[in-house]
């Protein structure tokens, strides 16, 4: 993965994989409500994929300079295994942690490449993932941590 296009292709593929993941889990959960939520998550990932496709064609600019708020919620939560009767809380934790992993991946990659277009793209992708993480963390903050 040395070229910008390769990186982007990878990222797009990752989003697709994530979407597939949620759809797969959705197949297995028992309650209809949870199924719907997971499918919503999958939709969200597909939306991310679209953004990246737009980046590839040049219609959309990544913004590595942008400051994204990090609520740091997922950093300290225990990991959740996907199972048949996961709760909404579990689903959110999974989503947050997946986004965090992606963010860390791009960030680490960016640290290893020299300055230039590539680094720019990697950082941009990292920020993009940070945004997604914020989306889920905000949801968690709003819905799960009500009394806390």
């Amino acid at each position: 993965m040395n070229t910008v296009d390769e990186i982007l292709d990878y990222a797009i593929e990752q989003e697709q994989l994530a979407a597939d993941f949620y759809e797969d889990v959705a197949q297995r959960v028992e309650t209809a409500g949870m199924k719907k939520i997971l499918l919503d998550f999958a939709e969200e990932e597909k939306r991310h994929k679209k953004i990246l496709l737009a980046v590839k064609t040049g219609e959309h600019e990544l913004t590595p300079e942008q400051e994204i708020l990090d609520l740091k919620i997922s950093d300290y939560l225990v990991e959740v295994k996907t199972s048949e009767n996961i709760s909404y809380q579990d689903a959110l934790i999974i989503a947050m942690q997946r986004e965090r992993a992606a963010y860390n991946l791009y960030n680490d990659m960016a640290q290893k490449v020299p300055d230039g277009k590539l680094k720019h793209i990697l950082l941009g992708l990292a920020k993009e993932e940070a945004k997604h993480k914020l989306f889920f963390e905000a949801e968690y903050d709003e819905r799960v941590l009500t009394d806390n």
């Binding site: 028992e30 309650t31 209809a32 409500g33 949870m34 809380q89 799960v144 941590l145 806390n148």
Partner: peptide, 25 residues
Amino acid sequence: SAIGQSSNLDYLSKELQEQLAFEWG
């Protein structure tokens, strides 16, 4: 720890929960 609580629906079978359209409790 007092950060909220959720319901315990163990007395209903999964089918019944599904039928009544419970969503995360």
